[in-house]
C-alpha cells in the first residue's frame, strides 16, 4: 500500500559518520554479499566479466572534496568519503508514486521496502527518489533497494549482538550506526544531536530518517600550539652543544 502509514514511534535507520569513513567500500560489498542471499536476492550483475559491467548494489561509496587548499596545501579543505543508501524517509515519494503498492513503508518500524512479487518495474519510484537509492533489477524486471537488512535485524537465527545491518557490522571505522531515530534517547539520536547530524537535501521535504554526521572541525589538539619553549637563546656563534655538557644521566 502506497499510502504512508500513520507515523509510528519507531524509526529505524542508519547514522553515518563522515568524519571517520575512509571509503573502503566494505559496507558496499558486505551489503551486496548479504543481500545476494537475502530478502531481495539475487542482486544480479550484468556483463560481470566484460565491458560495461554493472549490477544491483544497495549501498555505494562516493568521494568528494570539500574546500580548496591554499598554495601550500594548507587550509581547511578535506576529502570526504560518502556512502549512499536508502534513507528510509518519513515522506518517501518513492512509496506514494508507486502505482501498485509494491513500494511501501512499514508502519511498525518505518523501513521502506519493495514487494518484488507485485512490482511491475515501471521505475517511477527510482525517479521519485532524490537520493538514487532504488536499484532496478533488469533481469527480474523489478525494483530493489536497501532493506535495512530486515532479514538480519529481527533474525532469531543470528546472535542478538549481531542483529545489525551487514554494512554496520562490517564497517572497520565504525562509521555506521544503526538504531531507532524515533527515540530521542537512543544512542543514534544522541549522536545526531551531539554532532549536528544532517538530513540530505532537506529542501525536498522527504525527511530522511538516516542522518549524516558532518566531518568534524579539527580537534582541540589540532589547533596550532604555541612555539616551542626555546631555552634561553645562546649568543650567536655559541656552541649549542655546551648546554648538554654538564648533564649527567643515569643509565
Amino acid at each position: 500500500m502506497t499510502s504512508l502509514p500513520i507515523p509510528g514511534q519507531k524509526k529505524l535507520g542508519l547514522v553515518i559518520d563522515l568524519d571517520v569513513c575512509v571509503g573502503c567500500h566494505a559496507c558496499a560489498t558486505a551489503c551486496k554479499e548479504w543481500n545476494s542471499g537475502g530478502h531481495s536476492a539475487p542482486l544480479p550483475d550484468f556483463n560481470p566479466y566484460g565491458a560495461d559491467a554493472y549490477g544491483v548494489w544497495f549501498n555505494r561509496i562516493h568521494s568528494f572534496e570539500e574546500g580548496t587548499s591554499g598554495e601550500d596545501g594548507g587550509g581547511d579543505a578535506r576529502t570526504v568519503h560518502f556512502p549512499r543508501s536508502c534513507l528510509h524517509c518519513e515522506e518517501p515519494a518513492c512509496v506514494t508514486v508507486c502505482p501498485t503498492g509494491a513500494s511501501y513503508k512499514r508502519a511498525e518500524d518505518g523501513i521502506v521496502l519493495v514487494n518484488a512479487d507485485i512490482c511491475i518495474g515501471c521505475k517511477l519510484c527510482s525517479w521519485a527518489c532524490p537520493y538514487g537509492a532504488r536499484e532496478f533489477d533488469e533481469d527480474e524486471g523489478v525494483m530493489k533497494k536497501c532493506t535495512l537488512c530486515i532479514d538480519r535485524i529481527y533474525n532469531d537465527n543470528i546472535a542478538e549482538a549481531e542483529r545489525l545491518p551487514a554494512c554496520v557490522m562490517v564497517c572497520p571505522t565504525s562509521a555506521r550506526h544503526f538504531g531507532d531515530l524515533g527515540d530521542p534517547n537512543s544512542a543514534v539520536s544522541e549522536m545526531v544531536a551531539a554532532r549536528g547530524g544532517k538530513d540530505l537535501m532537506p529542501e525536498l521535504g522527504y525527511r530522511p530518517v538516516n542522518k549524516y554526521l558532518p566531518p568534524r572541525r579539527q580537534t582541540t589538539a589540532a589547533r596550532p600550539s604555541p612555539a616551542p619553549p626555546v631555552p634561553p637563546p645562546l649568543a650567536a656563534g655559541d656552541n649549542k652543544l655546551l648546554r648538554w655538557v654538564d648533564r649527567l644521566l643515569s643509565r
Partner: peptide, 25 residues
C-alpha cells in the same frame, strides 16, 4: 552541498564515483 550536507569548508566537488562504469542510475 545540500545533497551531501557538506560545504562548510568551501566548494564541494566529486572526486570519485562509486563505480567506474555506468550503473542503473
Amino acid at each position: 552541498a545540500s545533497a551531501t550536507g557538506l560545504g562548510r569548508r568551501g566548494k564541494v566537488r566529486m572526486l570519485e564515483p562509486p563505480n567506474t562504469e555506468e550503473n542503473y542510475l
